[in-house]
Design a protein around this nucleic acid. Structure first.
Lengths: 347, 347
DNA sequence: TTGTATGCGTTATCAA
DNA sequence: TTGATAACGCATACAA
C-alpha cells in the first residue's frame, strides 16, 4: 500500500518563520527592545512591553534557541550517554534524570552506545560539537585515559558507576561491593556455602566490585572461594542459561546474578533443568527492577532506588552547571536487600 | 560527606575552543578553504587539503554544529516525544528509533510528557524552537485540533498510534482493533464467554480500538456485550488490582489486559484472591514485552515487534526528511498472538 | 583553486 | 528607556 507521498516543504507551508526583526518592525521598535522583553529585562517601558508582548502573542512568535545559544554559549541541552535504553535499569534512571532536568529547564539529548566503545567515543565528541551544557555518562567500556581526555570537552560531567577523580566530573556510584557482599552474606546465613555467581562483562567496574564483595563474604565466613563457581557473561543474557547449567553441574545450592533480568534467565534455566526455585536452588538478583516482583517465585534481590538515582545524578549536574553551589563529588548508593520468594534456608 | 566542590570553568580549563578562523590562520589560508575541506567539497587543491586536514587533526578541531545549523537550517536532531521512557513498550521502540536514526546521522532529542497535556504542548513548541529536523510523536492526550495546529511547526512528523491525515505527517499505528478482536476470539474459542476487559485511559485511540475489537468478537459469536465487564484504568496500573477484584466478583473466566504490565497486576490480584491462573481464570496481555516471558505462568499475549516498529517509524521519518523518497503515510502493525501458559480451555 | 563579502537570529556593549 | 553596532562560528554566492 505504498503511495506516492513525498514530503516537500513547499511554498504553502513555508510561511517563513518570524524573526525578532519582523516583530521589531511590526511593533515599530528596535529588535533590541524585543530581545529585552523576551528576556524579561527590567529596563523597558511598561507600555512598550505590553505592546510588544501583544504582538508576540498574536503571531505566536518563538525565538530561535539556536541563534540565542550562539551568543549565550548555553544550549540548555544535556547529553545523556548510556549503553541501552531498553534496559529497565537505565530507563528508570533516565526517567529520574529527565524529570529533574526538566524542572531546571534543561533537556535531554539521548545517546545510546550499545556498549560499543567507538560509539561512546564519538558520542562524547558529538556532545561537544553540539555544545551541550553538560553530560551524564554511563560508559562501562571507555578506559580511564580516554575518559580523562574527553571529560574536559563536555564538562561538567556526572559519571554513573565510575569512580574517577577528575576536574569537572562528579560520580554517582552503586556500592556493588556492598551489594555483592550483602547478597552473599545473606545466602550464607541461610545455610548456603556452595554459592555460584554470574557476573556481567568482567571489565566493568561494578562487576569487579560485586565479585570482591562476594569473596569478602565467603572469606569472612571461612568458606573457600572456588574460581569455577565464578561466571562471566561476555555478551548478553543469552549466555546466562548455559552458565547456569554449568553451575548446577557443580552442585551449587544458590546463585547470585548481576541483575534481575539475568536472574530471570537463571530461574528459567533451572526450570528447564527440572530444578525448583527456591526449593532446590536459591536465586538472588540485583537492581530490583519491575520484573522482579512479577516473576514467580518473586525474586529476592538487592534493590536500587533507580528513579531517585536519576534525580541525584541530574541534581548534581545542575549544581555543577550553576557553578556556585557545592556538590557531592562522589555519591554512593547502597542497594537494599529485598527478600522475596526465590531464596530459602538450606535445611 | 558534602565537600566544598564548586565547579568553575576557570582559566586553566578555558582553552577557548578553536574556531574555523583559528585553523585558517594556522594553515595560512582563508576560512573558506577550511569550510570546504570540512564539507568535502571537491574544488580544493589536494596539497592544501592535506595540509589543512593535518592541522585540523593535530588540534582535534571540531566545527560548531550550532553555527553550522544556523546557516544550513538543519540540526540533525529529531525530537522524540513520548509519555514514559521507563515503560518498556516505549523503551524498546526508542531503541529501534535511535539505532535507525543514528545510521542516518540523526540524533535523538528526548522529551517525556508523563501524559501531561500541557507538557506535550510545550514540548512541541520547544522542538520547534530548537529547530529540529523532524519529530516522532506519541501523544495520546493531545486533541486533533491542537495536533493539526502544531504539526506544521515541526514537520515532518511521524505519529505513533494516532491516525491523522495531515500534511507533513505520517502514521505508524498498531491495529488494536485486530488485537482486541484476536485476543477475545482466541478466548472464546477456548470456551470462554464471560470475558472481562481492562483498558487504559479511555480517551486514547488504541483503547477505543481495542474495545471495538473485543465487542466485534463477542458479537460475531453471539455473546452479549456486558458493559460491566468493561473496565477503564484512568491513572496508572495501581488501579488494575481493584478492577480485577470487581471482575472476579462478576464471575468472569477470562480477562484481557491492555498491556503486559497490567496483565501482571491482574495475575497478582488473582493470586491475592486465591485464584489460580490459568486454572481458575485465564489472562491475556498485550505487547509482548520482556516481562511477559518471565512471569509465571508465562503470559499469553498479543505480541508486538517493538524494536522493528521503532525502526519503521524512524525510517519513515528519514524518507520524509530526505524529501525525494516515497513513504508510507500509514503503516499498520498487526500484533501476533503468542500463546503461553496464562490461558486455558474452559472444560 | 582560492578569497571576500554577506547573512543566519539572537544577545551584549555602548552610546544616545 | 531605547537604538545602533558588533559579535557568535559557520556556509553560501560570487568574484578573483
Amino acid at each position: 500500500m505504498l503511495n506516492e507521498n513525498v514530503h516537500k516543504k513547499d511554498m504553502r507551508s513555508m510561511e517563513k518563520k518570524l524573526t525578532i526583526n519582523d516583530i521589531a518592525r511590526m511593533a515599530g521598535v528596535s529588535r533590541q527592545t524585543i530581545s529585552r522583553v523576551l528576556n524579561n529585562k527590567p529596563e523597558v517601558n511598561e507600555a512598550t512591553r505590553k505592546q510588544v508582548l501583544r504582538i508576540i502573542e498574536k503571531h505566536e512568535f518563538q525565538p530561535s534557541l539556536q541563534a540565542r545559544s550562539m551568543v549565550t554559549r548555553k544550549t540548555n541541552m544535556i547529553a545523556v550517554l548510556l549503553p541501552d535504553i531498553s534496559n529497565s535499569f537505565f530507563a528508570e534512571i533516565v526517567r529520574g534524570i529527565e524529570r529533574t532536568l526538566r524542572a531546571n529547564k534543561l533537556h535531554v539529548f539521548l545517546m545510546t552506545s550499545e556498549e560499543e566503545i567507538a560509539l561512546e567515543n564519538s558520542f562524547i565528541q558529538l556532545a561537544q560539537n553540539y555544545n551541550v551544557d553538560g553530560m551524564i555518562l554511563c560508559s562501562p567500556r571507555l578506559d580511564e585515559a580516554n575518559l580523562r581526555k574527553l571529560i574536559p570537552r563536555v564538562s561538567p560531567v556526572v559519571l554513573l558507576n565510575r569512580d574517577l577523580d577528575a576536574d569537572g566530573a562528579a560520580c554517582v556510584v552503586v556500592d556493588s561491593l556492598y551489594g555483592g557482599y550483602t547478597a552473599t552474606k545473606y545466602l550464607i546465613e541461610k545455610g548456603h556455602s556452595k554459592i555460584g555467581i554470574i557476573l556481567g562483562p568482567s571489565r566493568a567496574y561494578s562487576n569487579i566490585q560485586r565479585l570482591d564483595g562476594y569473596k569478602k563474604a565467603l572469606v569472612e565466613f571461612g568458606i573457600p572461594v572456588e574460581d569455577d563457581l565464578i561466571m562471566h557473561v561476555e555478551v548478553d543474557n543469552k549466555g546466562v542459561h548455559k552458565l547456569t547449567e554449568q553451575l548446577v553441574k557443580k552442585k551449587v545450592t544458590a546463585i547470585t546474578a548481576y541483575n534481575d533480568l539475568a536472574a530471570a534467565y537463571v530461574i528459567q534455566a533451572c526450570t528447564d533443568l527440572n530444578l525448583k526455585v527456591p526449593d532446590d536452588i536459591s536465586v538472588i538478583g540485583f537492581d530490583g527492577s519491575v520484573i522482579s516482583q512479577f516473576m514467580n517465585p518473586a525474586l529476592t534481590t538487592m534493590s536500587l532506588p533507580l528513579f531517585e538515582m536519576g534525580q541525584t545524578i541530574a541534581n548534581t549536574l545542575v549544581r555543577m552547571i550553576k557553578g556556585d553551589q557545592p556538590f557531592e563529588r562522589l555519591t554512593t548508593i547502597y542497594p537494599i536487600l529485598k527478600e522475596r520468594n526465590s531464596t530459602k534456608s538450606l535445611s
